[in-house]
Structure formats: C-alpha cells, structure tokens
Simulated assay, not measured.
Amino acid sequence: MPPTSSPGSTLDPSSSRPGLPLGPDDPRRLDGYRLLRRLGEGGQGVVYLAVPEGGAPVALKLLRGGAAATPRARARFVKEANAAREITNRHVARVLDADVTGDRPYIVSEFVDGPSLQESVEEDGPLTAGQLRRVALRSAAGLAAIHRAGVVHRDFKPGNVLLGPDGPKVIDFGVARTADATPVTTSGAVGTPAYMAPEQIEDEPVGPPADVFAWAATVVFAATGRPPFGGGPSAAVMRRIVTRPPDLGDLSGELRDLVTHCLNKNPAARPTARQIVRALRDGEPPAPRPRPKQIPRYRWRMMLALTAVVLTGFLLGILL
C-alpha cells in the first residue's frame, strides 16, 4: 500500500527541486501514486516526484524497461529494494514502499525537498567551515549506515547529497549494490568519473573503500567548488585519479588530513566510514594499516602475455 505520509515533506509547487515536466512516454499514474514530474534519470531507471492518495510527496524510481527488463536487471532491482529497506538512518533517504514483482517495478523513497550539494555550491559557492563540517559528518554517518547494511553505494557524489530541511541526506541507489554482488555492467567502470576511486577505473573489485574515496572527493568539492582531480574529458580525469595526487586547494586542518587519508590510491589504506564519523565527531583519528596493493587482473594478464612473448622469442632463438 502507498504510504499516507512522508515525515518532513510537504507538497510545494515552488519546491527547490522542480525537476522536469513529464514526457509523452512517462506514466501519469502507477498503482496508487500520481506522478507529477521527473526528478532525475540514470542507467537503471527514472525517478519521479509522486503523490499517493491523500499523502505527502515521495520519490518514485521506476525500473527502466518495465516488463521487458532482463531477469538480471529485475533481480538487481529486487536486491536493491531489499537492501535499502535495511537502512534506517536520518541521513539516508528512507525507502517507504516497493513493488518489484509487477510489470512496472518501482521503489518509493522519502522525498527530500532541498537542493543537492552540487546545486548549492554551483549557485552559492563553497561551504563555510561550519557548513562543511556538518555536511562532511552527516554524509559520512549516512554512508556508514549504508555500509552497515552490507551495501556499496558506488556513485556517491555532490549530486547525491541533498540538503533538506532537517540536514543532509544521501540518496540514489541507482547503481548501489550489495557487497557480494557481481559487477553491474560488462563494459567497465560504473560511477561518475570525477568521484570514482582508482579501483573502479581499473575495473577491480569495488567495496566500501570506493565510497570513502568518493566521500572525500565530495568534501573537496564542497570546500573548493571543484573536485580534487579537476574536470574536463572523462578519460583525462580518470587518468589523473589513477596517477596523480589530489589538489585539495585551501582545505585545511584535521579535515584536510582526513580527506588525504581517504583519497589514498590503495583501498586498504583508507579509513572506514565509521572511522570518519568518529574522527569528526569525537576527534579520534583513524589509523588504517596499509597493505601491499594487489596487482590488478588486467596487469596480471599483461605480465603473462609479455612473459609468453619473451619465452617464445627465447625458444625460437635456440631452435634457429
């Protein structure tokens, strides 16, 4: 049944997140929900502002492809819904309802009536020191709750942190995966280039440390107005992420030290989201123990191929 209320939300036509008008192919109603406008779109589906009968507005994500969606896509959607229901934290948008078995699977979550961190910084400039610390702490607390539920967000970025009336909330599990899930696509990395961790770019296994890297890059954007590895073509940004140190601008103090640890290119050397919260809330500095970074699979393949070429040349030299 559709929820009758969503705490902290009111239906306001002048909402700070107006979205886009519905297109000719967008549904106007879905079960007990009336769809008002689009809030966003991703690889897995479209998110709408919707209103249940007699209720307050919600965010409804409709699985792309509907009845024609592949069994794999539908299974991922079911996993996402089940995992998201386990996350109960005031800094994460709550899941209120879901139907993952019908012809048009959807997930309904809390509607956060406020701009994204991306929009806020682009419009008003970098956050003040006090604002930055609050956003950093509360978004890290949301991320810690997500990880406790066994979920990896995979696309944490300024656009997925909404500044609602009751504080920042992490949203959008469009590419979120349970920690034991297989890769989402067969075409490589998933995420937003400027906030991707090196292991995502190198198509290596992605876990909570990738979200920590993205959190740190998001904090740098909030403090400086730009991501730590710059902008431009995606390939250039990703190359800088893998090979160059971050540019933290005038970010200073303990937050600079913490962000530096989180942007370590070795996932094992990064603190956990829970350690970040303790550092910001209690002043307890994290002390991760770096381990030798494993050689990526593709580099093993390159080394094996090179070894085969050298051996072949050696053998041919002996025989000839």
Rank of each mutant, 00 (worst) to 15 (best):
T4G: 15
P7H: 11
S9P: 09
T10F: 09
S15G: 02
L22G: 05
D31E: 14
D31S: 11
G32W: 11
L35P: 06
R37S: 15
R38F: 02
G42A: 11
G42L: 05
Q44R: 05
V47Q: 09
A50T: 08
A50L: 08
V51S: 05
E53T: 13
E53I: 04
G55F: 10
A56L: 15
A59H: 09
R64A: 13
P71T: 14
P71I: 13
R72S: 14
A75V: 07
A75W: 13
F77W: 15
V78Y: 09
E80T: 09
E80Y: 08
A83V: 12
E86V: 11
H91R: 15
A98E: 12
A98D: 12
D103F: 00
R104Q: 11
V108N: 05
V108H: 01
E110I: 06
P115T: 12
E119S: 14
V121A: 08
E122V: 05
E122K: 12
P126F: 06
T128M: 03
A129N: 03
L137N: 01
A141I: 00
L143S: 02
L143T: 02
A145M: 00
G150F: 00
H153G: 00
H153T: 00
F156C: 01
P165S: 13
G167P: 14
K169M: 13
K169P: 14
V170M: 08
V175Y: 07
A176N: 11
R177L: 15
P183T: 07
G188H: 07
A189M: 08
A189T: 05
G191E: 04
P193S: 04
Y195C: 02
A197W: 07
P198M: 10
E199Y: 06
E199A: 10
D203N: 14
A210T: 07
F213S: 04
A214K: 04
A216W: 05
A216S: 06
T218C: 02
V219E: 02
F221I: 04
T224D: 07
T224N: 09
P228C: 10
P228F: 10
G231W: 14
G231M: 14
P233Q: 11
A235N: 12
R239H: 15
R240I: 07
I241G: 03
I241T: 08
I241Y: 06
D250T: 14
L251C: 04
S252H: 12
E254C: 01
T260Q: 10
H261R: 15
N264G: 10
N264Q: 07
N266K: 04
V277E: 02
R278T: 01
D282L: 09
P286C: 00
P290S: 02
P296T: 05
P296I: 06
Y298L: 05
R299F: 09
W300G: 01
T307W: 13
V309Y: 04
V310T: 11
T312L: 15
G313F: 12
F314Y: 15
L316W: 13
